[in-house]
Design a protein around this nucleic acid. Structure first.
Lengths: 197, 197
DNA sequence: TCTGGTTTCTATAGACCTATAGACTCCGCG
DNA sequence: CGCGGAGTCTATAGGTCTATAGAAACCAGA
């Protein structure tokens, strides 16, 4: 991709983050050892410490990698001029496809970030809140526009959208041939109209 | 409760399972040590092995404890003669309130069961499948009755109901003064009618 | 009080894990 | 060729973890 502009160090570090993400995702933060990560990366255990100050820092980097571009996408969706339904569809698409594109790092963000000490979690918290608040804003706007029912609690709605996407994310990670488009359609259909006739 | 009918061993073991559940829920299976569990129970680390053959067995027992009565409740809901809406409400109520009543064991079942080796997970799998299938059956029936739209995929619907409940379950465990009734109402409202006007 | 069973304790073996220190290899450049 | 830095390796200190073995405490009934 942008190989020429990245140093060998950056490239290798990105690989290391991916390896850590994969191990953390499948075994959990505490269940994955630095030896496991190193083995996946094809180096010796001690060599990891050339790229990470500590295992905890590796987790932090994976989490950041997992949520960053994802928040940016959310900002773009919130700011574009699309109607509510399109925004919702785009949100779900973005969220679900993250589970494929960013190599399990989002799953790690969701499941393992709580194991970080508070001071290291601060940046993450801001990113996560930013995401939720953008989504809430989209719902507030839709309520004001009369597209969403006035009695809907936008905080509940945003959390639930995130929750549904994360819940299906677990399935996506585990079942590689799930049809994401179909799943996205079903999710937005539920969110908009429910199951009742 | 039924203290007279239970031996001292059974009582202490139940306490041990609860302690293990609490530790596994807050630190994860690998992050919680047998020493932590013992400390919470008020005994020495080695003493745990009087009740559990291994740490893994402790996890298994916690998971079983977490899902058992919950499946039974689902069976009762599926079999009662109530209309669909009432069944759905009861399902969500049952699921969400489990996160309070059974002391985090359901959370452990959801988040940590994958760390069990396949042979120990078999029983759990059956219980989990039973749960999902009952829920699917409720949706199939509702579709047949014309209460739920014919184009709804009952498998997707069941998984999503479970996913939403689990997602909110995480919040419930972390925030003790969430209003469960209100939350249940909002969830069923979403599931039935969606957010759109 | 003595006895046998139940429950808990102490102590430890043996494994594994993180992080560090210092040596080694590789490669671009003068 | 020789140098210097980047990246990787080996080896290990120091800690924690699970599981076990055997001693000790407790308790009910004869």
């Amino acid at each position: 991709m942008n190989a020429p502009s990245r140093s060998r160090y950056d490239e290798q570090k990105a690989e290391a983050v991916k390896a850590a993400a994969a191990e953390f995702a499948s075994k959990g933060y505490h269940g994955a050892s630095t030896k496991d990560i190193a083995a996946r990366l094809g180096v010796q255990q001690g060599s990891l410490y050339y790229y990470f100050r500590s295992k905890e820092d590796a987790l932090l980097e994976v989490c950041l990698y997992g949520i960053r571009d994802y928040v940016q996408r959310m900002e773009r969706i919130a700011a574009d001029g699309q109607p509510f339904e399109a925004k919702l569809f785009a949100t779900v698409t973005s969220h679900l496809s993250s589970y494929r594109s960013t190599n399990e790092a989002l799953k790690v963000y969701n499941d393992e970030r709580l194991y970080l000490p508070p001071e290291k979690r601060r940046n993450l918290k801001e990113l996560g809140s930013a995401y939720r608040e953008h989504l809430e804003g989209i719902f507030d706007q839709a309520i004001a526009d009369g597209v969403v029912r006035a009695d809907v609690d936008s905080h509940f709605a945003a959390q639930t959208v995130i929750g549904i996407c994360n819940a299906w994310g677990d399935h996506i990670v585990r079942e590689p041939d799930l049809d994401l488009f179909d799943l996205t359609r079903k999710c937005t259909d539920l969110l908009l109209h429910g199951f009742a006739r």
